[in-house]
Nucleic acid binder design. Structure first.
Lengths: 209, 209
DNA sequence: CCGGTCATGTAATCGGTTACATGATTCG
DNA sequence: CGAATCATGTAACCGATTACATGACCGG
């Protein structure tokens, strides 16, 4: 089963917006697609060479020496559409936070809460960034037919981040119900000195229903 | 910068729940952690050998010949906690759907709607699966202290899937406003025969606000 | 002139999937 | 008995990251 060359799609895609150097391609992917895609130099430069060789992009060694601007060709546009139509190859899931929470018993409620709190902060920051990006797209008059599609992806990111926020709140609340150290309020329950955690079941864990 | 051995974490983690064969480790990861983690045989068997060599797991070649059951050791439990405390290494984002939608101009509204529709179906199915898993965890009396943590991760998956549903609905609606082929209702607007798509701006793209 | 940014590439390495080879057990 | 499942491992390959080497250009 051949693995898809999604790098080709990404590079041709950003070149379809406007011609640019390899360096700028990477910046465009990091800054604009950054919330849902990533490529490194080690992938981009060889790919640009390949695209040139196959006639999907042309290199214009101009402006400054030691710098070449790549532009997508007519054939490259056809190739891009073809690539976009290929079945989606989603990478196998690898969520480090969930891996840790699933085995959170070995960390205990307090450390898990800390992990979730960090994730919440990250989600908040992502929302701020995406909102800024959306504002820029909405007000900026430059990008023409691309606009509605870009707004679609931004909306997806915002929705996902908001979902993370909601989940985190519920999860932290559930964990606070589980151990006696929320920082304030009711102290440790009377009697229990150092329970092994056997009674962790019950109604606990109704997080973010 | 050393890349983290999160495979070790995952394998030790499932062994911490109960001893099992390598084959069962993979099944556990696929069926239970499957929504947010994955490992293949090619990773699991070498890792089990390493864990045995390092004293984090023991092999009990018993019950049936040609089959060995691995159990986590005391040292392995310490190692697991250590691994869980290491900073989260999240894989660089690679969302194939978003990559396609971002360059959706080259596909057109209809094909994009189809992609989103597929994603919506997937999300629905994931919700169904996760709900079943949650029911099993809630009713099953077996798993003791692990339960609240497992419910946490399941809740995260459900929340994310619901967010996808909401986004997909908004996105499809936005795209239908963009082109004249929703299948029913108002046909193509009068006058425009084959617009180049220049007027795709305006109020379009208020998806899933 | 020196540090930061822009710019281009290559080599080493690694994490991970896929495919292959092999065999026992169980169930219809 | 034959197919499906359980079970263990190895080898090849590949996509991707990281690090390295190099150099132009610009502003303070």
């Amino acid at each position: 089963m051949r693995r898809a060359n999604q790098t080709e799609t990404a590079v041709l895609g950003v070149l379809s917006v406007q011609p640019m150097t390899g360096y700028a391609v990477r910046e465009a992917i990091r800054d604009v697609l950054g919330h849902f895609w990533s490529e490194s130099f080690g992938q981009i430069y060889p790919m640009l060479a390949t695209l040139e060789r196959q006639g999907y992009a042309t290199r214009q060694g101009s402006t400054k020496p030691g710098s070449s601007v790549f532009a997508i060709t007519r054939a490259g546009q056809g190739r891009l559409t073809e690539l976009l139509r290929q079945p989606i190859q989603d990478a196998p899931p690898r969520n480090g936070l969930m891996l840790r929470l699933y085995f959170g018993r070995h960390l205990g409620p307090a450390e898990c809460r800390s992990l979730i709190h960090d994730a919440r902060l990250e989600a908040e920051q992502r929302i701020a960034e995406l909102t800024a990006v959306r504002r820029a797209i909405e007000s900026g008059a430059g990008h023409g037919a691309d606009r509605p599609y870009w707004l679609l992806t931004v909306a997806a990111g915002e929705q996902a981040a908001r979902a993370t926020l909601a989940w985190a709140d519920g999860a932290i609340a559930a964990l606070e119900q589980l151990d006696p150290a929320p920082g304030s309020g009711a102290a440790a329950a009377p009697g229990a000195t150092a329970g092994s955690g056997e009674r962790a079941g019950g109604s606990g864990g109704t997080a973010a229903g």
